[in-house]
Simulated assay, not measured.
Amino acid sequence: MNSSLLSYYEAIEKASADMLDAARAGNWDHVIKLEGACVLLISQLKNAARGNNLSSEESQLKSRIMKRILVNDAEIRHLAEPWLEDLDHMMAGKPKTLH
């Protein structure tokens, strides 16, 4: 088994879950910090994956992990939308309006 590759996927999943927890708490500075850790892990994964193939079982596990990461990412983006909208309005010099 190529457990070292899977450990990268698991670490990325853990970081994405931590990012989601931070986003739910409104701690966007921590989200950004964790995002940087994810970028580093992804880079390390790409290097480790060169020439290493996963077995069928490992590929299935990788797919399940990736789906969980994508679900976390989608929820983080959903939570970030109002914050990003506020930021857009502030950058454009528009006051926030209630509707």
Rank of each mutant, 00 (worst) to 15 (best):
H99V: 14
Q44K: 14
W28P: 02
L34A: 05
R50A: 13
G36R: 11
R24A: 06
L98A: 10
V31K: 00
D29H: 00
H78L: 11
L79S: 07
N27Q: 11
K62I: 00
D86H: 08
M66I: 15
G36S: 10
I12Q: 11
R24P: 00
E81N: 11
R68K: 12
D21V: 13
A92G: 05
N53F: 05
D86Q: 11
A48S: 14
S59R: 08
H99W: 08
M66F: 03
D21C: 01
R24M: 07
L79Q: 10
I32S: 11
A37H: 07
A80T: 06
K67H: 13
D86E: 14
N72C: 09
K62H: 01
R68E: 12
A74C: 08
H89D: 13
S43K: 13
A11E: 13
W28M: 10
D21N: 12
A74S: 15
I76C: 06
S3Y: 09
L20P: 07
I32C: 04
S3E: 15
N2W: 00
A92T: 00
D18Y: 02
S56G: 09
K14M: 07
L5A: 10
L45S: 03
A11H: 06
K46D: 12
A49N: 10
K62V: 01
G26F: 02
A23G: 09
A48G: 10
L45A: 03
L54M: 08
S56L: 11
W83L: 15
A48H: 07
I69D: 04
R77G: 07
A11G: 11
P95D: 12
K62Q: 09
L20D: 01
A74F: 02
N72D: 09
L40K: 15
L61F: 07
I76Y: 08
P82V: 04
A37L: 08
A22H: 00
N53G: 14
A25Y: 01
E35Q: 10
E85N: 14
R64E: 15
H89V: 04
R77S: 12
A15G: 03
L6Q: 03
N2G: 07
H89R: 15
Q44D: 14
R77H: 13
N2T: 07
R64D: 14
L40W: 05
G36W: 00
G51L: 07
A25K: 11
E10Y: 08
A11D: 11
S63E: 15
S63A: 15
E58F: 00
K33F: 09
G51V: 04
Q44Y: 04
